[in-house]
Design a protein around this nucleic acid. Structure first.
Lengths: 186, 186
DNA sequence: GGGCGAGTAGACCGAACGATCTACCTTGTG
DNA sequence: CACAAGGTAGATCGTTCGGTCTACTCGCCC
């Protein structure tokens, strides 16, 4: 079964969190958008809403990480950066600037929801690791590759944050320009 | 009166939003932390919670902008970047990695709370303008200064986002290194 | 055929939400 | 002194929150 209640709930959670954040997403919205029964949440996620958010964040993070890895297999770091930003930019403007990054939204969850914060941190770390591999393949020293890879994730996320708030792709365009420069010159 | 209910409410709002986000912050928390009466909210912010958040976001943004301007008056762009990141890093780790950026938290408010989103976007734009002025003073072409200044804001915010989620200052350290490189070489 | 786990539908719980209201107290100014 | 404005305290509103519960249906495998 490829779209049982569990999958539908996680998809709805990812989308709603992108639009309203963790605390802004209620169970009723979740149930309505996923067309599932209230009981199904606790059947698949005994820990309730937070466990659902945790699992959804990790799934979204893994999905994006796989995409980065796929891109990275054939692209240079410079091409990878532009491809990532283009995808993000299209996704943001295509949703009327409503849908941000589900991981970033999870990263700004309340400070005491450690599980959600960890899920976000792990997703970011996974992305950085993929980018780091590409940079290392291009001959960068390990320490430099690690630092640069981490900062690429930060720069992209920060630009997306600003782009959603200002309802403009300009921050993302700027990030593409500057990150390209940063990755290019050595 | 320098710390009437209005100021106390805004201070509490900034702090709570930094810790729990816009939707995670309830009126009861706000009242308790600011030691003010429920009625005072609607006395000073007839639009209710969202107007309070809006005003608080703008106040926090203006405060930080003034600090950036002050730094920028005597510092090089490179020094400004490291100073900003050090302040942020200290503030984050000093709060046990609980308190993020109030503007970033506002930027991830629900997509239909346009007023809050606008307040965040305006704050970011104000910061970028201050940084742009420093870069322009150093002789950068206008287009380059604007793009770079905007991206500095993005990079710092993204790094702070990741640092809070991972409860580590490493993303901020990486951002300082990479932004220093970016600002330095021309 | 009988049983069982998954899924659906929806009532229901106490608690918290944002917001409104009355009542009382303080302060400063006419 | 009187009075208006601002502040405080807290009851109360209807709604929504996350979570629990019962009842019923369906498909599947012993």
């Amino acid at each position: 079964m490829s779209h049982g209640p569990r999958e539908r709930l996680m998809m709805a959670a990812i989308e709603l969190v992108r639009e309203r954040g963790v605390e802004g997403t209620g169970l009723s919205d979740l149930l309505e958008r996923s067309s599932s029964a209230r009981r199904s949440i606790y059947q698949h996620f005994p820990g309730g809403k937070l466990e659902l958010i945790d699992a959804s964040t990790r799934a979204a993070g893994a999905f994006a990480q796989a995409a980065i890895r796929e891109f990275g297999a054939t692209m240079s770091s410079r091409e990878l950066v532009t491809a990532m930003i283009r995808l993000i930019s299209d996704s943001l403007s295509g949703s009327g600037f409503r849908l941000g990054c589900p991981i970033a939204a999870a990263a700004y969850a309340p400070a005491d929801t450690i599980a959600v914060l960890d899920a976000a941190a792990d997703a970011f770390a996974g992305w950085a690791a993929e980018i780091e591999a590409v940079l290392a393949r291009e001959g960068r020293p390990e320490a430099e590759a690690r630092s640069l890879a981490g900062f690429i994730v930060s720069g992209v996320e920060g630009a997306l944050l600003r782009a959603r708030a200002s309802r403009s792709t300009e921050p993302l365009d700027d990030a593409a320009d500057q990150l390209t420069r940063l990755v290019q010159d050595r």
